Amino acid sequence: MRSQIELIDVSGAKRRRRQKRRRRLRLVFRIFAAVFLLGVLGRLLWGTGFMEELSAFTKLPWPFGSKEEQEQLEQIYAKEDSYPPELLEALEKNPELLSFVEGYLSSDGSVTGGLTEEELSQDFPLLLQYDARWGYAPYGDNNIALSGCAPTCLSMVVTALRKNGDAPPNVVADYAMERGYYQDGVGTMWSLMTEGAPDFGVRGEEIGLDKNLIFARLEEGSPIICSMRPGDFTTTGHFIVLVGIQDGKIVVNDPYSRERSEKLWDYETLEYQIKNLWAFSLL
């Protein structure tokens, strides 16, 4: 049995960790607010190009740090102990998760909606794994918001090619778990892209990391799912979709970041970060 001193030490350590996390989050949001004010000043002094340049330099989502968002953050940390630590850590790294985290405690983990007519009408809709419609649903040892990048990418591909709403991220995630394409401690297996894809009416073909080949496939209208190394998109592992070419650069749908999805990417920037890739077409 633990002594009273040991229990006090454990309690104190937890309290110090919570305090440290609060200070870190508050500092991050204050930085966002300061950058926002600098951006407003920049618009007045140097024109509309300043905001884009500043955002690219800081690599922060834009805009951020509003009064409403500050209040959301305070509400979350008033109930800090009720949230999984990994969810708060994810919020620290990606402020786009703010609304998702705020709604976490009121969700029962169920799916609340499917794809919209607007999404179905787009050539390549951007679907986000932390979308409240499906992000709270379980996937592997977590939920789709934190672990479901691969199913969300395949969902985007199927939706773009087949033009129907039969394969939202939660449906692909359920399929991946039921068929053994998710491995605990590892994540989504690459075989989902080739062996699993035909069950959704598309063909996934592993291709080589070659600029001319990639550009040719994208110009043909074939989306490409990439497994990514640590870099601009991840610190561990991640999946993204290459969906087209614009002004000689690659258009990316990143299921974990709207901000990164709005940016055009040089092939040379992506090349060293790509671990493997698959081009998709209709069966």
Rank of each mutant, 00 (worst) to 15 (best):
Val40Ile: 14
Leu41Thr: 07
Leu41Pro: 00
Arg43Ser: 12
Arg43Lys: 15
Trp46Gly: 00
Gly47Leu: 03
Thr48Glu: 14
Thr48Asp: 13
Gly49Cys: 02
Phe50Asn: 07
Phe50Thr: 12
Met51Gly: 04
Met51Arg: 11
Met51Leu: 15
Glu52Ala: 10
Glu52Leu: 02
Leu54Ile: 03
Ala56Thr: 09
Phe57Ser: 06
Phe57Tyr: 12
Thr58Ala: 13
Leu60Arg: 02
Leu60Gly: 04
Trp62Asn: 14
Pro63Ala: 03
Phe64Gly: 10
Phe64Asn: 03
Phe64Leu: 11
Gly65Glu: 01
Ser66Thr: 14
Lys67His: 02
Glu68Arg: 15
Glu71Val: 12
Glu71Lys: 12
Glu71Pro: 00
Leu73Gln: 08
Leu73Trp: 06
Glu74Trp: 02
Ala78Ser: 08
Lys79Asn: 13
Glu80Leu: 13
Asp81Val: 08
Ser82Pro: 09
Tyr83Gly: 03
Tyr83Arg: 06
Pro84Ser: 05
Glu86Arg: 14
Leu88Cys: 04
Glu89Pro: 04
Glu89Thr: 14
Ala90Ser: 15
Leu91Thr: 13
Leu91Gly: 08
Leu91Val: 11
Leu91Lys: 12
Pro95Lys: 00
Leu97His: 01
Leu98Ser: 10
Leu98Gly: 07
Ser99Gly: 11
Ser99Asp: 15
Val101Phe: 05
Glu102Gln: 15
Glu102Ile: 10
Leu105Lys: 04
Asp108Pro: 00
Asp108Val: 00
Asp108Ser: 00
Gly109Asp: 06
Ser110Arg: 04
Gly113Arg: 11
Leu115Asn: 09
Glu117Lys: 14
Glu117Pro: 01
Glu118Ile: 09
Glu118Asn: 11
Glu119Thr: 12
Leu120Val: 04
Leu120Pro: 09
Ser121Gly: 13
Gln122Leu: 15
Gln122Tyr: 07
Asp123Glu: 14
Asp123Arg: 11
Pro125Tyr: 14
Pro125Cys: 10
Leu128Trp: 06
Gln129Tyr: 14
Tyr130Ile: 05
Asp131Met: 10
Asp131Thr: 12
Ala132Tyr: 13
Trp134Gly: 07
Gly135Thr: 04
Tyr136Gly: 03
Tyr136Thr: 08
Ala137Ser: 09
Ala137Lys: 02
Pro138Val: 00
Pro138Met: 01
Gly140Trp: 01
Gly140His: 00
Asn142Ala: 12
Asn142Phe: 04
Ile144Gln: 03
Ile144Glu: 04
Ser147Cys: 08
Ser147Glu: 11
Gly148Leu: 01
Cys149His: 03
Ala150Arg: 02
Pro151Asp: 07
Thr152Gln: 13
Thr152Asp: 11
Cys153Arg: 05
Cys153Asp: 03
Leu154Thr: 12
Leu154Tyr: 09
Leu154Trp: 10
Leu154Lys: 14
Ser155Glu: 05
Ser155Leu: 07
Met156Cys: 04
Met156Tyr: 05
Val157His: 07
Val157Trp: 09
Val158Gly: 02
Lys163Asp: 12
Lys163Val: 12
Gly165Ile: 04
Gly165Met: 03
Asp166Cys: 15
Asp166Lys: 15
Pro168Met: 01
Pro169Ser: 15
Pro169Met: 14
Asn170Asp: 15
Val171His: 11
Val172Gln: 05
Ala173Met: 09
Ala173Asp: 05
Ala173Pro: 06
Ala173Gln: 10
Tyr175Pro: 02
Ala176Pro: 01
Met177Phe: 01
Arg179Asn: 14
Arg179Lys: 15
Tyr182Glu: 07
Tyr182Asp: 05
Asp184Thr: 13
Asp184Val: 11
Asp184Pro: 07
Gly185Val: 02
Gly185Asn: 03
